[in-house]
Simulated assay, not measured.
Amino acid sequence: MEDAESQQPMLQKGPPSHRERHFTAGEVVRDVIMGVSDGLTVPFALAAGLSGASAPSSLVLTAGLAEVAAGAISMGLGGYLAAQSEADHYKREMKREQEEIIAVPDTEAAEIGDIMAEYGLEPHEYGPVVEGLRRNPQAWLEFMMRFELGLEKPDPRRALQSAFTIALSYVIGGLVPLLPYMFISTVQDAMFTSVGVTLFALLFFGYIKGRFTGNRPFLSAIQTTIIGAVASAAAYGMAKAVQAR
């Protein structure tokens, strides 16, 4: 009797409190990475190339700022069009799936069973789920979009947010290699300072990118820095080669 009474509270206890923490800003991080990565690399390579051609600091700065403005607009527009294309694709697929649910409901219901079977469920286990979804067309449609087509409903504000995030990130990244040219009049000194500042920024950004994307942070930092260094070195060498002719 005592054992039964002692076990009763344990049976009545609910599951232990569990607070899941998931990172849900993946799309924003992707946009930031895209914008900052290109912003650090392209103006850096442009400034190095112009410096290799012995252009004055004022010209390097002017050309660099023009490139940052144009690049931010171009990258932002690209992000907007990409996000808008995803939204349009989702709408087209949703309309097609909705028509199929109406025209061939038995076939679509069988597809629910096929999806459930892939998770190891038996017909007698997923049968009630199939019937429940058939009674709720909207839930049925959302289920098919997610589990059959692998499509998540896009945020209607996603296109504008993506454009703004990428453009702003590009501007922030692009100003880093240009800062020395704002304060140092000698182009060679400004270039060497820009190289040091930008390589440090690439290392830091690569490390942070690795932390957010789940890759090895130090490897990500080295890879990002090498890409930026190679791009700037190529632009600098090309400018020197052209100037020598």
Rank of each mutant, 00 (worst) to 15 (best):
R157N: 10
Q161M: 09
S57M: 08
Y90R: 08
P105N: 08
T107Q: 12
L121H: 10
E93G: 02
Q138W: 09
L40E: 10
L133R: 09
E97C: 00
G127Q: 14
E125Y: 07
R158W: 01
G79D: 02
A163V: 13
L65Y: 06
M75T: 01
D38W: 01
E93Q: 13
V130H: 04
K153R: 13
V129K: 04
L141N: 03
G64T: 04
T107H: 14
G71S: 10
E125L: 12
E148N: 12
Y90M: 06
R134G: 01
L133F: 13
S85D: 07
S57W: 02
S37E: 14
V130I: 15
G127F: 11
V129R: 07
P56V: 05
E86T: 12
S74R: 03
G64F: 01
D106E: 14
V36K: 01
P123Y: 02
S57K: 13
M144S: 12
A72P: 11
I33W: 03
Q161H: 11
H89T: 09
P105Y: 13
D38Y: 01
G113N: 09
A48I: 04
I115K: 10
A103I: 14
A159P: 08
S54D: 10
V68G: 02
D155M: 05
I102T: 11
G127H: 14
S57D: 09
E67T: 02
D88E: 15
T62M: 10
G78I: 11
Y80L: 15
E148Q: 14
M116E: 11
V60M: 07
E67G: 01
G35S: 08
E125Q: 15
K91N: 06
T62E: 04
R146A: 05
K91A: 12
A159D: 08
A163W: 07
E99S: 11
P128Q: 13
G127W: 11
M94N: 13
S51M: 07
M116Q: 09
E111D: 15
P137W: 06
R135I: 02
P43G: 10
L40V: 08
R135W: 05
W140L: 04
K95F: 02
S74Y: 00
A66S: 15
M116D: 03
F44I: 07
T165E: 05
T41A: 13
L40C: 11
Q84D: 15
G39T: 01
V129C: 03
M34G: 09
S57H: 02
L50G: 02
P154Y: 05
L133Y: 13
G76E: 01
L40Y: 09
L77Q: 06
L46A: 06
L40Q: 12
R135H: 13
E148K: 15
E86L: 12
E99M: 12
R92C: 04
M34P: 02
D88K: 14
M116C: 14
V130M: 14
A55D: 03
Q161R: 13
E122K: 13
R158I: 07
R134M: 14
A83T: 10
D114N: 13
A69Q: 02
P56S: 08
I115C: 05
M116F: 15
V60D: 04
G127M: 12
Y119V: 00
P105E: 06
H124G: 04
L40I: 09
L121Q: 11
S74G: 13
E97I: 00
L59M: 08
P137A: 09
P123V: 06
P43W: 00
A159M: 06
G71N: 10
D88M: 09
I101A: 08
E97R: 00
L149W: 06
I115L: 14
